[in-house]
């Protein structure tokens, strides 16, 4: 693996007294999709939110350790969260478009970061992002319609388009398909595969099939610790750890 984009070194997270993440180490490479799996409550969401400092918004959360993005510690004083979150985008479990037009949803990121000067450049970004998210054909005639009027799957793709529009280096996805039907899920999985060419993607999923389909590497979380991380094929066919095997076989029945 050449120099990873993210290096997580000995990270601990506490919610008050609850030790949610226990000295986790993980490297994330460019152009790879890495999936995080594990039983409910094992700390996957907590971990993924460490990568763009979304845990800052939680009063009780405390974090220690190092998270390096391109070698820079994102928790250091020099790192600006606004800049960090522009570079590390996030798609949430529940589609959460703004109650604004489809166009404004996608244009929001570029606007606040001042990425474009002219309206036509903005139009281009919006179109390109919606195309990449595979939503353009469905919404091109109603860009002024309110984002929340779309179906759940469309909303989630809109949220992905909104994240792409900023041009991040990494995209974090926390169970992006949990609220979607199989067809919408398939579309998003295809999309993730395409996006891999330009971005590093970290995806939390409860579906082992999904992890197997979209990711090159998989990390298994258990009670706040990473038990095993490796190539997806290896994890699913030949896990080294007992816990991983139990989880995977238990799930597959």
């Amino acid at each position: 693996m050449d120099k990873p984009i993210f290096q997580v070194k000995g990270v601990d997270v506490f919610y008050g007294d609850n030790h949610a993440i226990k000295s986790v180490n993980l490297d994330i490479a460019r152009n790879e999709v890495i999936s995080l799996i594990g039983p409910s409550g094992c700390g996957k969401s907590t971990f993924i939110r460490c990568l763009n400092r979304m845990n800052d918004t939680i009063e009780s959360a405390r974090i220690s350790g190092e998270v390096l993005l391109e070698g820079e510690d994102i928790y250091s004083k020099e790192m600006d969260v606004v800049m960090l979150r522009a570079r590390v985008g996030m798609v949430f479990q529940k589609p959460n478009p703004f109650p604004k037009s489809i166009y404004d949803n996608v244009a929001y990121g570029p606007r606040i970061h001042g990425l474009v000067d002219t309206r036509s450049d903005l139009d281009d970004i919006v179109k390109e992002s919606l195309q990449k998210a595979g939503l353009w054909e469905e919404v091109k005639d109603r860009l002024t319609a309110i984002g929340t009027s779309l179906s759940g799957g469309q909303q989630q793709r809109l949220c992905i388009a909104r994240t792409i529009a900023v041009g991040p280096e990494v995209i974090l996805m926390d169970e992006p398909c949990s609220a979607l039907d199989p067809i919408a899920t398939a579309k998003i999985e295809d999309l993730i595969d395409e996006l891999r060419e330009k971005y590093a993607i970290v995806i939390v999923t409860h579906s082992m099939q999904q992890a197997a389909r979209v990711s090159q590497r998989t990390a298994y979380f258990h009670l706040g610790e990473i038990i095993e991380v490796g190539d997806t094929d290896q994890i699913f066919t030949n896990p080294k750890e007992r816990l991983t095997e139990d989880y995977i076989t238990g799930r597959f029945g």
């Binding site: 979150r85 522009a86 959460n96 929001y108 606040i112 909104r162 994240t163």
Partner: peptide, 27 residues
Amino acid sequence: VPPSIKEAALGLGASKLKMVVDHVIPL
């Protein structure tokens, strides 16, 4: 105001003030 919308704005890199002005106040 739903926290999911606030998270969406923060996740895109809006500062707290920007999030309040653009999303919390209108809603």
